[in-house]
């Protein structure tokens, strides 16, 4: 076995303790700020949740069918209709609406924060280089690792779940906004400059419109990742479709977990089909 420095059997410095000290310090001194950050998320989340649960299921289904029809065509509309009815008949309607409102509010914040960050990254190589490892960390750090500090700072509940979801689901929209803008052909940027276009005009009139399909692909990925996060969010007391899955897991009720899981998959398919069509030019 290796001797001396390279024995690597025990930690040589107490990073573990340092992290604890930092988090505890944040909790002790800045919990109120973090709690304040909850406020907008909470308002939007509960607003959407109450609205969706207040609406008659048939209205929600009709809404989905209309949007699907307009953007993705008859087949997707039909698919959405059947899928949502199946989810309803599984007895998961209310949970599905809660999950949907969690996804919508998480995606809302991801977009509001992520698109400007993506644009900033596309304009500055330095910023892009700096934000890249942060995005890597956001995407790959196991959710369970940051659930603990999230709970300590934001307490348990659906709002904390949404905040964890935002962290996890934001990277794709930042990355793809950046990528989409950078992929706009150089000659179009040159043409805009040659006619006296400012950077602002180039962004607004050329880069963002042309990057739209890619940004939409980012939005789609963000939605998918939000959905996959809802089960985990149930661990910290979030409601929605994660609850039956989590309960099923705890009490070995395979059926219950299966029904929750199936509902999540069906919702994911509906949202995926519909949002994938957003970035594409209309087929007709």
């Amino acid at each position: 076995m290796a001797e001396g420095f390279f024995s690597f059997d025990e930690a040589m410095y107490p990073l573990e303790d340092w992290i604890e000290v930092v988090v505890e310090w944040l909790v002790a001194n800045h919990r109120s700020e973090f709690q304040a950050m909850k406020w907008p998320v909470e308002k939007i989340l509960w607003g959407i949740d109450h609205f969706l649960n207040w609406l008659h299921p048939s209205v929600v289904i009709l809404g989905f069918v209309i949007v699907a029809w307009r953007y993705a065509g008859v087949r997707t509309a039909l698919f959405s209709l059947i899928t949502l009815i199946v989810v309803g008949t599984l007895g998961m309607w209310s949970e599905t609406m809660t999950t949907l409102s969690m996804v919508i509010s998480a995606v809302f914040f991801c977009t509001v924060v992520g698109v400007p960050l993506g644009i900033a990254a596309s304009q500055s190589d330095n910023f892009a280089a700096w934000i890249r490892p942060v995005l890597d960390a956001m995407q790959t750090t196991p959710a369970f690792v940051y659930l603990v500090p999230v709970v300590m700072l934001f307490s348990i509940g659906t709002v904390a779940g949404v905040i964890a979801t935002i962290i996890f689901a934001m990277p794709p929209i930042i990355r793809l906004t950046n990528l989409g803008i950078r992929q706009v052909p150089m000659e179009l940027i040159e043409a805009t400059k040659a006619f006296g276009g400012t950077r602002q005009q180039t962004l607004r009139r050329v880069q963002i419109p042309l990057a739209m399909p890619t940004i939409m692909a980012g939005l789609n990925q963000t939605i998918m990742m939000s959905l996959s996060m809802v089960v985990i969010a149930a661990l910290i007391g979030a409601g929605g479709l994660g609850v039956p899955v989590f309960q099923g897991l705890n009490s070995l009720q395979v059926g219950l977990a299966g029904v929750g899981g199936l509902s999540i998959v069906l919702m994911a398919m509906v949202l995926d089909r519909i949002t994938q069509s957003f970035g594409k030019p209309k087929s007709k």
Partner: peptide, 29 residues
């Protein structure tokens, strides 16, 4: 904006704009 314009080898037309909007692009800017 006033005195110079440019024509490109690759045409460099905006794919998301109509021919008219493309022709008017310099004036729009």
């Amino acid at each position: 904006r006033k005195d110079m314009s440019m024509v490109f080898q690759s045409f460099a037309l905006m794919p998301h704009m109509s021919v008219l909007e493309n022709a008017a692009f310099g004036l729009e800017l």
